[in-house]
């Protein structure tokens, strides 16, 4: 029975995961990465009238080491791609990415020589927000979607599988 608790969906294991997920989803500290007009909407979502802190995104972390969610708000030029990748690599696990706006998702209207056509081939994206730019409500909705996703995660299962030898 004790073994079952580690292999199957046991009571203790499930509860611990829920506890971790609860904690993670309620404190998604954002790393604001505003490169264009979406950044303005993101600032608005973070500021008083929309107040993203209500959902636990309490502290916009300008250091990637202390951030959980990279909010990529704006156009990424080809010159910027290595910078974005490095910022993402500097974030500690677990980490998530929100691609905000048409430019971050697909390159948007900037189908030109200098613009990277969507960030999803540089870093993995969890939530895409369409819009040019999206309203702050859009960003809050994406954050709620991300919180749903985090709650469905299994942070311990992977470790147990590794501990039992694959």
């Amino acid at each position: 029975m004790g073994l079952q608790a580690y292999t199957g969906p046991g009571w203790l294991l499930t509860k611990a995961e829920q506890l971790i997920n609860w904690g993670r989803s309620r404190s998604p500290w954002p790393l604001p990465y505003g490169t264009a007009c979406c950044g303005i909407e993101m600032m608005c979502a973070l500021a008083a009238s929309y107040d993203m802190a209500r959902f636990g995104a309490e502290r916009p972390s300008f250091s990637p080491r202390q951030a959980d969610v990279l909010i990529e708000a704006g156009t990424i030029t080809k010159k910027m791609v290595p910078v974005l990748r490095r910022i993402y690599d500097q974030m500690a696990e677990p980490k998530w990415v929100i691609a905000m706006g048409a430019c971050a998702c697909t390159g948007g209207v900037f189908r030109t020589y200098s613009t990277h056509q969507g960030i999803s081939d540089v870093i993995p994206v969890d939530v895409y927000i369409p819009g040019c730019p999206p309203r702050p409500e859009g960003l809050l909705y994406a954050l709620l979607k991300l919180m749903d996703k985090i709650q469905k995660d299994h942070p311990l299962r992977k470790q147990v599988v590794e501990a039992l030898g694959g």
């Binding site: 080809k78 791609v81 290595p82 490095r86 690599d89 030109t112 081939d121 540089v122 870093i123 993995p124």
Partner: peptide, 13 residues
């Protein structure tokens, strides 16, 4: 453009 990409092979995901 002509498909130029900045060389970032070491950081491609």
């Amino acid at each position: 453009g002509q498909g130029e990409q900045r060389d970032f092979d070491d950081c491609r995901f």
